[in-house]
Design a protein around this nucleic acid. Structure first.
Lengths: 327, 327
DNA sequence: TATGCCTATGAAAACGTTTTCACGGTTTCC
DNA sequence: GGAAACCGTGAAAACGTTTTCATAGGCATA
């Protein structure tokens, strides 16, 4: 059968308690510690993490709940989170919700059952608004989206400013009929829309807004319908990388030349955005920083559960490329 | 304190054993099952998965060990794996090795300590060659790369045929100086290289091969050096999506027009490959199918540990685009 | 020398489940 | 009508650790 701590204890000629202490950071004499380590090597002992978790009540696990890992934004953030977690000796359980509140609820319940150390969560607007500070049984940090003000720690982009910067840039280039295509499920998309509308108003321009499910296929369909109209916009702002990609596809299909027939500006400086001619103007999010900050906030919250709620707002960086150059 | 199964038992007026059976699929009368369910709702009971795992010796967890989740191939595969896992009631622990054998060893040890149900693993060549069937304490399926023949279940692409198809296509278009830039750490890259060389020989062409670390930055640097030479290749085959991206970047930097100055063909039909003009010819891998098949193999192996080793070889699909059109 | 306080250690309890074993009550089978 | 099989249930053991509690010895202090 499997070798347990009792076998190690027997091999080392000490008690199981001493083995446990030698392996952890308990007080043990150097001689005994060496004996134990030798016994561990000799027996090929591997601690049973389930037993350890049960007894010590420290799951050493964090949950990472995102909409879809295939969204490059979440891919990058998740990588940062995992690096930080494993560096701290924590395991990561990854969950994809597809922006479905039912699956969000399911995974939150799973996190409770795992007795996780903490959770990093990108909730839909519906779930975020429904979650009060104490409805979650574990420390939680929201990323990308925030919920009720002051309810949860969060790290988000300054979406209003970022969207405004795109409008300013386009307006500065002389575009007037600037449309906005925004995701329909996240608070982030709402904020970007608000920033867009505020900036449009500043420039005395009429907003043109449409909402769409945040995936490339839906965005392509909606953009194609929009751009086929006679009074189509001459520039488009897209609220994330997937929607941006859909819009590029739609423009291609309709034979529109960028930026002559249509200017495009979006979010997420994904590796491909500078490869599609003439280069796509985007807001770059500090993805690694977002993941790292989220972990920092989570650790702080775990350490001092009662400290005031914090919201870290990071600035995007406008990467100006050919897609918004006035023909 | 936290509510446990004892509290539920007390509330329902039954023993803990009965609660356990009612929650699982043990034999219980309908009346008692209802009482228990009511008690669960009343108490807000959440089973402690660590305790459950310890006692039942079923971790209900699978490990997914890949090189880097940011590689879109792994992103897509991982999503398929997770869907299948959660559908079967299993949790997924995700690990990134960055193709580092030391981290591979670290994560394999972690998997032992977790007593995982099974592992899906994309090993480096070094690790794959060192792993005998019984050196792993849990069922394992290799993806993307295979190890010693007959040692582990695996699901891989027919890399030789796929690389050959690219060569055939390029040669058919009249290209002669066809170079190959391959990753240096995976068996997959070796196979693609072998397929390339065999096909080149078939066509009576001299192979031109370089190896590079499998990431976009390294590939860009190596491609730039290569393409700056006077006797540079007139076509390039790239062994994965990251290397393909690096090559595109290098061509851009050097001002080479595709395909007039340089034809490109690669692997991985990532969403952006049809957006960069004039469209990149690639081998599309059935990513979702790879993930799903890996889970199927894993389940089969868990069910019957002693069945013969299986290797599922899937075919790629050549997606021909403008990047390989003879000028 | 006696007292008290640390330190390293072992015995045993505890963590929250599932599983084994036993048992009484029905039903089924000859 | 008795034996055998079956069913639902409870008491208690078991899973593999960590932690608590107790203790023996060493060392400093009075």
């Amino acid at each position: 059968m499997s070798v347990g701590i009792r076998d190690v204890a027997r091999a080392a000629g000490v008690s199981t308690a001493t083995v446990s202490r030698a392996l952890g950071r308990g007080p043990v004499s150097d001689a005994v510690r060496e004996q134990v380590e030798a016994a561990v090597r000799a027996t090929g002992y591997r601690p049973n993490l389930s037993a350890r978790r049960l007894r010590s009540k420290a799951a050493q696990t964090i949950g990472l709940i995102v909409a879809d890992i295939r969204n490059p934004f979440f891919t990058a953030v998740s990588r940062a989170v995992e690096d930080a977690a494993y560096a701290a000796g924590l395991r990561v359980i990854l969950c994809n919700t597809d922006e479905d509140p039912a699956r969000e609820a399911l995974y939150l319940r799973l996190m409770e059952e795992e007795r996780v150390t903490g959770v990093i969560f990108a909730p839909t607007k519906a779930t975020a608004d429904a979650l009060t500070p104490d409805s979650l049984g574990f420390p939680t940090v929201f990323i990308d989206r925030s919920g009720l003000p002051g309810a949860h720690d969060s790290v988000v982009l300054d979406n209003v400013a970022a969207a405004g910067a795109l409008v300013d840039h386009l307006a500065g280039q002389g575009f007037a009929r600037i449309g906005g295509l925004f995701g329909s499920t996240s608070s982030t998309a709402r904020e970007r829309q608000a920033g867009y509308e505020a900036a449009m108003a500043r420039h005395g321009l009429a907003p043109l807004v449409r909402a769409v499910a945040p995936n490339a296929a839906a965005a392509e369909g909606e953009a194609a319908r929009w751009l086929a109209q006679a009074d189509r916009p001459e520039a488009l702002i897209l609220s994330n990388g997937l929607i941006l990609m859909g819009a590029v596809r739609a423009a291609r299909t309709l034979g529109l030349t960028i930026p002559r027939d249509l200017a495009l500006a979006g979010f997420d400086n994904e590796p491909w955005t500078d490869l599609v001619e003439p280069g796509l103007t985007v807001i770059e999010q500090p993805v690694a920083e977002i993941g790292a900050q989220a972990m920092r906030l989570l650790f702080d919250r775990i350490e001092s559960p009662d400290q005031p709620v914090r919201k870290v707002v990071l600035s995007g960086r406008a990467v100006l490329r050919g897609s918004t150059r006035r023909g």
